[in-house]
């Protein structure tokens, strides 16, 4: 660029710098984390997917060069794998539903609560969120124990004669997953309820709606972004549950993560374990995307 030319278009008044100049600050700030995530997250995940496409039956060193869907066919043929997928889906749906029914009233109630009560309840929710999953699951081992409070209460009420085996069951897993998911459900719902102006409640009531109808017709639809966020998170967490079914379930209630981990840690079958986890991840993501599209269409909200 000549001196004359630069006098005509000085750098400062050029409508916009080059692409690089424009994005340089962002690129420099993002680079360290992006590099880290590329190496230690994206590449390993890619390798896992690659591993799942190899032929490895466990007894000999086989040809690893050509990609094959062998492991996925095996997954579909294995009743233990398909059974765990169906079970995981069932448990997750149930957990999300119950978790929603328990959490929404808390979130709504927080909206009306005084400052002290609200802070107290939020503290309890945050402490739950922050406390160990193992500790919380152990709490359910205590509550549901043979000589635990639930059994003793049922006996005291004369409903049963001998303690029921409540632990190591699908019911126990669902209970613990609901408990684990509640903070994830309460916080986003509360967040989106906070964004609904109080005039919406009042407008609905002044037009003749009862509180219940206002909730159903106005508040619930408008809190859908939070409901979606919460249900999606709890669903994803339940679909990938591992520690909870290990602690509160039995071999006959194995969830997908358990079946895959077994292949890796016990059978040392990396290929099949990877295929099962890839399947779980893809299925979960597909359901979440479909769910998001459905919510977007029905409730006209951006999620």
């Amino acid at each position: 660029m000549t001196a004359t030319a630069s006098a005509v278009t000085p750098a400062a008044v050029r409508p916009r710098g080059g692409r690089w100049q424009r994005y340089a600050p962002a690129a420099l700030l993002l680079a360290p984390l992006m590099a880290f995530m590329l190496i230690f997250y994206l590449i390993p995940i890619g390798q896992m997917v690659g591993e799942s496409l190899t032929y490895w039956s466990g007894d000999a060193v086989e040809d690893k060069a050509t990609p094959t869907l062998y492991q996925y066919e095996k997954t579909l043929e294995s009743s233990r794998a398909t059974g765990s997928i169906v079970r995981t889906f069932r448990i997750s749906l149930l957990s999300v539903a119950i978790c929603f029914l328990l959490s929404y009233p808390i979130a709504l109630w927080l909206l009306f609560a005084g400052r002290k009560l609200r802070t107290g309840v939020l503290l309890v929710v945050f402490i739950s969120l922050a406390s160990s999953l193992i500790v919380r699951n152990y709490g359910w081992l205590v509550v549901l124990a043979d000589a635990g409070p639930v059994n003793n209460l049922l006996i005291a009420l004369g409903l049963i004669e001998f303690p029921l085996r409540l632990t190591y069951s699908e019911g126990a897993i669902v209970t613990a997953l609901v408990h684990y998911g509640m903070p994830f459900m309460i916080l986003p719902i509360y967040g989106s309820l906070l964004r609904i102006p109080s005039s919406f409640w009042e407008a609905s009531q002044s037009l003749g709606a009862t509180s219940m109808r206002t909730l159903w017709r106005v508040i619930l639809p408008l809190s859908m972004p939070g409901v979606f966020g919460g249900t999606m998170l709890v669903f994803a967490v339940s679909m990938s549950a591992f520690v909870t079914p290990l602690m509160l379930g039995s071999p006959s209630t194995a969830m997908v993560s358990q079946v895959a981990a077994e292949q890796l840690l016990v059978q040392l079958n990396f290929a099949w374990g990877s295929a099962i986890m890839t399947t779980l991840t893809v299925v979960t993501l597909a359901i979440v995307v479909l769910y998001a599209l459905a919510v977007r269409k029905v409730f006209r909200v951006d999620v």
């Binding site: 390993p44 993560s257 986890m277 979440v288």
Partner: peptide
């Protein structure tokens, strides 16, 4: 960058140990 929370932890574990 936010996706690791929604991915199954076991998947991340399996991917990382192989890596």
């Amino acid at each position: 960058l936010l996706s690791p929370v929604t991915l199954p932890m076991v998947a991340i574990g399996i991917a990382l140990v192989q890596f």
